[in-house]
Amino acid sequence: MEQLTEINALEETKRLPAVKRSIWREIVKQKYAHMFILTGMLIVFVFHYLPMFGILMAFEDYSISSGIKGIFTSEWVGLKYFKEFVSAYNFNLIVTNTLAISLLKLLFTFPMPILLAIMFNEVRHQLFKRFAQTVSYFPHFISWVVVSGLLVIFLSTNSGIVNDLLKGLGLTEKSLPFLSSPNYFWGLAVTTAMWKEAGWWAIIFLAAISGLNPSLYDAAEMDGAGRLRRIWHITLPGIRGTIVVVLILAVGSLLGGGLVGSNFEQSYLLGNAMNSERSEILQTYAFKMGLAQGRYAYATAIDLLQSIIAIILVFGSNYLSKKITKNSLF
């Protein structure tokens, strides 16, 4: 019996070229690890790739009453919905809001966690450092629904604590219409997102900083480098790779709000008819059109347009980063 298996194995090795043989052997050797990866791939396939056939809806005269089958049988209308969206009276407004909120968030919320991580790293009092770090990432765990509920109460013009405080301190005479004036929405979106997520993202940068060789700092100190110089010449270059990877990810999800995400949640929960001039974004518009009005085809077209922009942004930022910093995601 043993002889037979040996012969079989020998024949098999004869059939396979040397490289393939070694790969196959590696795979067999790591079969448990591969099973884990396969499960992950399966999940990605089932939940991310498989539903992509729904994109077809964007080019069809699709009605929800025709069900899933309708996605394949509906009449083809080409770019009708894309044209309709582009010529919508509020197209410019929605696109401007989406881009402005996203870019403002990138501009302000991206450097914040890096700054915070460096500051934490410089704190010598361990207990205070741990306390401050916990406090800073805690808001990450509060859902936007709760946060917006709190904001509505705090920012009310009539009895909100923020307006009472501002008036009490003599900073304003009249209550500021934080929630009902479109002028405040962008600022509100950026600051609240920063408050909620900066501490959380600081963890990644802190981890990168803790991986730096302490002897570098010692050497720099010996050479007479002060604290700022050490940050500038050791910490920042040391975590450059992490910064670039996180930046590419942030640019990739730019239209969703970048690192801190939450563009949709904020616009949906804090947006209202009064501030919609500044709060209506692609995602909320697609949501209203798709779910509230049942125009799935039109909403798919809007979302598809957004996905295309996101893909361009990921590849573009990756390419630029490869050229400029020699660091890239892929």
Binding site: S156, T157, N158, L179, S180, N272, A273, M274, N275
Partner: peptide, 9 residues
């Protein structure tokens, strides 16, 4: 009447 009336959720 309040402008905020239009923001009631």
């Amino acid at each position: 009447m309040l402008a905020e009336n239009f923001t009631f959720k």
